[in-house]
Design a protein around this nucleic acid. Structure first.
Lengths: 200, 200
DNA sequence: CAGGAGGTGGACTGTCAAGTCCAATCGATA
DNA sequence: TATCGATTGGACTTGACAGTCCACCTCCTG
């Protein structure tokens, strides 16, 4: 493990993580082999072990990179979850993305939970952190709505955010297993009903 | 592949599937090795290949066995989802189970989606079938409630059932990743709100 | 320009996994 | 009891994988 990374080192490390993240998305975490990673990243075995302790360390890096990219993909939407219109735009974008993908793949983060949560405690923690970063955007938005009196004073933004995330993740899972984007649409329509039922 | 299975053969086949199902639940589908299966089932390699085409064939059998056992574990609850009390009992039992398990493992079926859906189309179909069998119980219950006038005539039992399954699966996923049974409790409380909002 | 830390190449090892093969045993039935 | 398919044991082949090792390169710094 080097103490400091030069620009070159940083670039190599990033290339490796990106390649690994692609392979995990395509084939699953267990099926990602380090040989494949090296080949796709145009890196050698020693480069890999120069930047990561072992396979698990790389997988945790992949989780963080995946979380970053999922949040980045929703950039411009997650910061406006403090209006009904903003929430509707977010939901619509999520459904549109699944249609584009033909209902394949599910949630890049959620899919990893079943694969890693019970096998590597560190990975579970990283995944939990990823969900927290995601959910926080919605929770904050709902809190701002409550402050502005758009949400009932009795409503609990934290619970509403958790329930919405559950509908999103469950909807994505059903979408994936049934190969039907309509499953997510239905789930998010339910989230809309739920949130509106807490409107002031 | 034998055409007919004798009682002995049936018993051996079952022992193998049960052993495989345990290992999949404990270590994940990818980490289940056929050697482990043979050892735990007190069977030999040729017995395994006598009853299953290959690894994938065994995994599909595991999915079906797991679905059966999940539905069996809810026996006595799934047939009474046509009253509010019956639905509440079901939700309470699901939460209690997660508390008992200390929020570990998530949904035995749902966890497999991320592991198998994109890798084996047959497995995906089996999983979808499992979810359908599960969801059908709720949908049927809601339809009976609608017939009896307990649910609004405008309500859509199919959508409500799908949304409830999404909340259940998403709630289980969040419970697993956060090691907090409260996540499922929150999600199912939301399901209750959603269903009640469709009451007549 | 000399030294050292960061960075790189690629062969090598030990392990373990899936799937194959063949000979042997069991058990129902004619 | 003779036969045949169901059933079983376990060694074997082939391939892939994680992780190690060591020689070499590159570039900044003093």
């Amino acid at each position: 493990m080097p103490q400091v990374l030069t620009a070159k080192g940083q670039s190599t490390r990033t290339r490796i993580v990106q390649a690994a993240a692609q392979l995990v998305a395509e084939k699953g975490a267990a099926a990602m082999s380090l040989d494949d990673v090296c080949e796709r990243a145009h890196a050698s075995r020693s480069q890999l072990y120069h930047y990561f302790d072992d396979r698990d360390d790389l997988v945790r890096a992949v989780i963080n990179a995946t979380t970053d990219s999922v949040l980045l993909a929703q950039d411009g939407l997650l910061d406006h979850l403090d209006t009904w219109a903003g929430i509707d735009r977010w939901f619509a974008a999520l459904v549109a993305l699944q249609q584009e993908r033909e209902a394949r793949g599910g949630c890049p983060i959620g899919s990893l939970v079943g694969q890693l949560a019970e096998r590597d405690p560190g990975a579970r923690a990283n995944l939990a952190d990823g969900f927290e970063r995601w959910e926080a955007h919605l929770r904050d938005g709902l809190e701002r709505m409550q402050e502005r009196g758009r949400l009932s004073a009795h409503a609990d933004p934290a619970s509403l955010a958790t329930s919405t995330m559950a509908l999103l993740q469950g909807g994505l899972l059903l979408t994936q297993v049934r190969r039907d984007p309509g499953q997510l649409r239905t789930a998010l329509a339910a989230a809309r009903v739920l949130l509106r039922s807490a409107a002031a």
